[in-house]
Amino acid sequence: MSVGQLAGGRVPRAARHAARRDVLFIAAAAVMAVVVLVSLIGPFLAPYDPNQLYVGPVSGRPSAAHLLGTDDLGRDILSRMLAGSPTSVFAPVVVVILATSLGSVVAVVSAWFGGWVDAVLTRIIEVIFAIPGLVLAVLAVSMFGKGVIAPVIALSIAYLPVVSRLVRIGARTELGKPYMAALRIQGVGSLAICFRHLVPALLPAILAQAAIGFGYAMLDLAAISFLGLGAQPPSSDWGVMISSGQPSLLAGAPEQSVFPSLMVVLTVLAVNILGARVTEWAEAADR
């Protein structure tokens, strides 16, 4: 008998209970809710035309008229951030959806069939893993040109191995458990075993991975924009804003870079906290 068993027993209810008092979790969820909402309706909330030059002073400080100040071309920073939020938020969402769904399918197929199917898929995943995401994105940009599309596709592929390795190990563990053998002996159909038992068992881990993946995708896409290979000016993707504000930094006007940076960091922080909590609950439920 292990000591862990002594203390265990009623974890999930305790976890659910804890969630209600978990300030950090609530804060993170609130930040995410705001970010998602803004990315949906943000462009309509913008007080100014985001691309209109000289609606205010050049590199103006935050003021009542321009809450977050104005950039080096006199554009309203708040309006630009709001206008840029759909690309900045939904591009990583697309990456995560593509990478997670594709990666999970590959992993489940790999674990389910085993043998040469597993060997071939694992080898392919291994090769993709060897090409860092940024390199794949750069390669895609030099093939298809600058813009959001090429990096999104490249990152979706580049993130595949992380998801698929994790899910494959989870699926193999799950398939190795006696209850899977029991289901087969009972004559439960393969599809039912897969979708009623296997996939639900893997779902928490997949979701947690998706949350963390979203954070990485957001950082990587912003980085690609920052490098000038992603979304192009005058688009106000957050990465573009950060990069185009760099000269103003040295001139003593940090707002143009710092506010979008803050947004990126806050969003990623929030989604990481959510991901960590999902993982904790999944582990508690597993015990």
Partner: peptide, 22 residues
Amino acid sequence: TSVGVAMPTFVVAILLIWVFGR
């Protein structure tokens, strides 16, 4: 470290340039 893992290179670079450059 929670904050750190949300701090991408370009954001840190921007902050460093601002703080040390300016």
